[in-house]
Design a protein around this nucleic acid. Structure first.
Length: 874
RNA sequence: GCGGACGUGGCGGAACCGGUAGACGCAGCGGACUUAAAAUCCGCUGGGGGAGACCUCGUGCGGGUUCGAGUCCCGCCGUCCGCACCA
């Protein structure tokens, strides 16, 4: 009678092996059924999976298993984002070759992922560090180059003089290299760029079509692209005041309406005119040098006060030749945006106002808020940036801000000086081109050679891949490719003369910008894609990953897909039709008396009189800290491997799906794991008992169902309907709640149904058990297979079709409506579903509670909302 | 500074288009079974009042719209996130 406890440790590997042997998760490209491509962001092979992976991959797996059951041919692949710095760091620290380190990590992580029971098609596995992958990436680089989507240009980088390497912004901490601690320098290097800005407008406009993306991500990308419409204005300069007789300064503005409020011109310290002026003015030179010092640390930039230096140059106002404006070098003007020069209108720009207040240049308001007396309107410490009417602006006076903009633009466009109009409308974007050069070894080599006579030459397609040499050393700083004795020496493909290879490798974001395409046919050797396969699978229907990739990875992938389309490798523009960003996994933190963090595994929690206290195994008290994202530094991590070994993968998966909405953070707790484990055991018992109440095939479907059987069937089909709906919407926490409810319902029926002589009740229990197992199968697949077997079902639940809802079971014959008096609930009425308004009203008014609340008065009005509520207005 | 999201029991959260607030789970309390414990099963569990049927207050705070507001509108407060001298 009593079943053994469910033993996940035995059952899980067994079912994983069965799935593996039957190859049921391998998707075929020639399968004619409708496709569904579900993808989770592939991991960096750090060597161990963490709880974030467990959450991410569980969600994707639920969708994959569900869609498979719904009759789709599902593509659910996995691979490795395998290039990158940690492999080189490991090489330096432990003298392991980056390749060995990476592949060992891949093997370890793959075993861990397999223990999760994910329904992945491992036949399509790719690793970006494999020449069979990066060969195609090199090919596409060359295609992009030919298509004008790649460019080589000078760019500023953070240079670590000790490690002799370029650092990403986040690797610069307080102006110093994160590893070496050396002061970081700004260096100009010639680097390769993908011309993502060619697609600025398209990447922006197409955001509107991504209706299955989170609004938040679309907004972040929109802001990142940063479109603004403005005007280029060529200010004339008084040549008598310029260092070399320069006669013109071009600025960019979006507030040309405020031109009459101008008080100064601002030059970036990097502006050519500023540099030229500095050559003749040592004090200015010193000022510029000082500006650059602040440069790197973000904090310093934030807090730096506005400072400037009068160059002595004078600009002429475009609408008044007699109006001179002083030209300052100002530390807050960026060379990278617009033209690196501005005109300052302090009354309507806070930065400009801070600046003039410091240098006593005054301010004149030119926009007056609606309804305020222009004569009384003054600007003090706070710039007025709102809408209003023009004042103090000659021919613009009285116009709205929009009218004034139009008027100024029109006039300046029509004014010609030296063959060109003084004003030119332009749309400006904040988005910059994507610099992909990295001075590192463990990345995809950029397939070009440098020839002294022919310049930069692409490596011929036939010579790809340019592979990384194996014999490298990390005993010295700098890029091993650069100092390799032979690797970089080659011949020029054009002239046959001596040439050197490019020793920079590509940013790893390039690798991850097209892996989802490669998965559609990872076997083809002659090209990055097999077009029919790519066309049939793409776009990804559901992409799932962390919000931290909201901008770069997703934007680069969107660009890359467009570039691939332009070069004929795919037929689509948008790679991800649906995007979901999951929340983090968080945990309490613990701090020992010595102030060091303590791992949860070392802590014992006790609850005494409602107060939780923590201590170490030797009794030393531990302080319970705030709940935070799991991180190595705070030591509040839980090892998925340990959880799977102790409780099984299904418990870990179930935890990840329960309670917290998937887009929000989830808190991992010991009580929580226990509870999920208890529920697994309970489901196991329920199914075993249900199997005894009604074993497979021995009960024909009854023609009639009595009350208890019907009630259970309604609960069953309602749960089926709701779980299906919620999986489609990725509302996994609600699925879990519905499954609990159904489990409660069937458990309450078991004893009565077993004792009942009527077969209909037993049949309903069996139906419920079967559907219940199918409902939790996407979430806890191993337990589901085990239960499916107990129920004597043929085949695997992983291959079973999703059950059909019997729609008439979702409709009740009678409905119970709440009855309110003046909005306060006073009772319920149960009426036939077909009852008319009058009937419902009469039934509601007949209630004792309603009569009591009315206190003898006649109701003023009775509102009957069909199927919802009755409200009696007294 | 700019932009966005979110505030519901002791906790995670549910509540469709404005219609019974607190589903489901955790924790807690009481009971059954047991020599006992574990496991399991049953019941209770927002605050206040009442022996009880019930009454009353209650979704961050203050207003408003509505027969009816957790949900809509206005104004605050708080928390989190993104961007950040972008002209």
């Amino acid at each position: 009678m009593t079943a053994e406890r469910y033993n996940a440790r035995v059952a899980e590997p067994r079912w994983q092996q069965v799935w593996d042997e039957k190859g049921i998760f391998a998707s075929k490209n020639d399968d004619p059924r409708p496709k569904y491509y579900v993808l989770e962001m592939f991991p960096y092979p750090s060597g161990r999976i963490h709880m974030g992976h467990v959450r991410n991959y569980t969600m994707g797996d639920v969708v994959a298993r569900y869609k498979r059951a719904k009759g789709f041919r599902v593509l659910h692949p996995m691979g490795w984002d395998a290039f990158g710095m940690p492999a080189e760091n490991a090489a330096m620290a432990n003298k392991v070759h980056p390749r060995e380190w990476t592949y060992a990590n891949i093997a370890a992580m793959k075993a861990q992922l397999k223990s999760m029971g994910l329904s992945l098609d491992w036949a399509r596995e790719v690793a970006t560090c494999d020449p069979s992958y990066y060969k195609h990436q090199q090919r596409m680089f060359l295609d992009f180059l030919a298509a004008g989507l790649v460019e080589r240009k000078q760019s500023k980088v953070n240079w670590d003089p000790v490690d002799q390497t370029v650092l990403a912004n986040e690797q610069v901490i307080d102006g110093r290299g994160w590893r070496s601690g050396a002061l970081v320098e700004q260096r100009e290097l010639t680097q390769w760029f993908f011309k993502i800005t060619k697609y600025s407008q398209e990447l922006l406009s197409a955001l509107d079509t991504l209706d299955r993306w989170p609004e938040k991500v679309r907004l972040m990308q929109k802001n990142w692209i940063g479109r603004s419409e403005g005007l280029h204005v060529r200010f004339a300069l008084d040549p008598a005041t310029t260092p070399n007789g320069e006669s013109e300064l071009e600025i960019f503005t979006t507030r040309h309406d405020t031109l009459f409020g101008a008080k100064f011109m601002g030059l970036s310290p990097d502006h050519p005119l500023a540099k030229a002026a500095a050559e003749k003015n040592p004090a200015l030179k010193a000022f510029i040098a000082e500006c650059k010092k602040v440069g790197t640390a973000q904090e310093a930039i934030d807090k730096a006060e506005k400072r400037g230096f009068d160059t002595g140059i004078r600009a002429i106002h475009p609408f008044d030749p007699s109006w001179r404006l002083p030209v300052y070098v100002a530390n807050f003007v960026l060379m990278e945006y617009g033209t690196g020069a501005i005109f300052g209108c302090p009354a309507h720009d806070q930065r400009d106002l801070d600046f003039v207040n410091k240098y006593g240049l005054g301010n004149t308001p030119v926009v007056c808020p609606e309804g305020q007396d222009p004569k009384m309107f003054v600007v003090g410490d706070e710039a007025f940036v709102g809408d209003g009417r023009m004042i103090n602006s000659r021919f613009l006076d009285g116009m709205t801000f929009a009218e004034a903009q139009e008027e100024v633009a029109k006039r300046l466009e029509g004014t010609v000086r030296g063959n060109a109009p003084v004003g030119r409308r332009e749309v400006m974007y904040r988005l910059r081109d994507w610099g992909i050069s990295r001075q590192r070894y463990w990345g995809c080599p950029i397939p070009v050679v440098h020839c002294r006579t022919c310049g930069v030459q692409p490596v011929p397609a036939a010579d790809l891949p340019v592979t990384l040499p194996d014999d490298i050393t990390f005993d010295r700083p700098g890029n091993p490719l650069d100092r390799h004795p032979t690797w970089k020496h080659t011949t020029c493909p054009k002239c046959g003369g001596k040439a050197v290879r490019e020793t920079d490798t590509m940013d790893t974001f390039v690798d991850s910008s097209w892996y989802f395409v490669r998965f559609t046919d990872p076997w083809i050797e002659t090209a990055p894609t097999d077009r029919p396969a790519a066309d049939s699978w793409l776009p990804v229907d559901q992409y799932i990953g962390g919000i931290e990739h909201a901008i770069l990875h997703l934007l680069y992938s969107r660009f890359f897909t467009r570039a691939m389309k332009a070069t004929g490798h795919v037929g689509i523009e948008e790679p991800f039709a649906g995007l979901f960003t999951q929340g983090m996994v968080v945990h309490e933190t613990y701090k020992g008396t010595d102030g060091h963090w303590v791992m949860p595994a070392e802590v014992t929690i006790e609850t005494v009189e409602g107060k939780r206290t923590a201590k170490l195994s030797d009794g030393t008290p531990v302080e319970i800290g705030p709940v935070e994202k799991m991180s190595k530094s705070k030591k509040n991590t839980i090892d998925p491997d340990e959880i799977i070994k102790t409780y099984g993968a299904d418990v870990a998966r179930w935890f990840m799906l329960s309670d917290s909405p998937p887009e929000r953070d989830i808190e991992w707790t010991e009580e929580g794991v226990q509870a999920r484990w208890t529920f697994v055991q309970r489901l196991w018992r329920i199914v075993n008992e249900a199997a005894e109440v009604a074993s497979a095939g021995d009960l024909p479907r009854p023609a009639f169902f009595g009350e208890p059987a019907l009630a259970l069937r309604k609960a069953t089909h309602q749960a089926l309907s709701r779980v299906s709906d919620d999986i489609e919407k990725l509302r996994f926490n609600r699925c879990v709640a519905h499954i609990y409810e159904l489990a409660n319902a069937v458990q309450a029926s078991l004893a009565a149904a077993g004792a009942s002589p009527d077969q209909d009740y037993r049949w309903a229990v069996r139906e419920c058990a079967e559907i219940l197992v199918q409902l939790f199968h996407p979430m806890m697949p191993h337990l589901a297979e085990e239960c499916w077997e107990v129920l004597g079902q043929p085949g695997l639940v992983a291959e079973a079709a999703w059950p059909e809802v019997e729609a008439d079971l979702l409709v009740e014959d009678t409905i119970t409506l709440p009855v309110q008096v003046n909005g306060k609930k006073r009772g319920d009425v149960t009426v036939p579903r077909t009852a008319g308004k009058a009937e419902v009203e009469a039934a509601a008014l007949a209630l004792d509670a309603v009569q009591k609340a009315l206190d003898g008065k006649l109701p003023k009005k009775v509102i009957v909302v069909p199927n919802r509520i009755v409200n009696v207005v007294a």
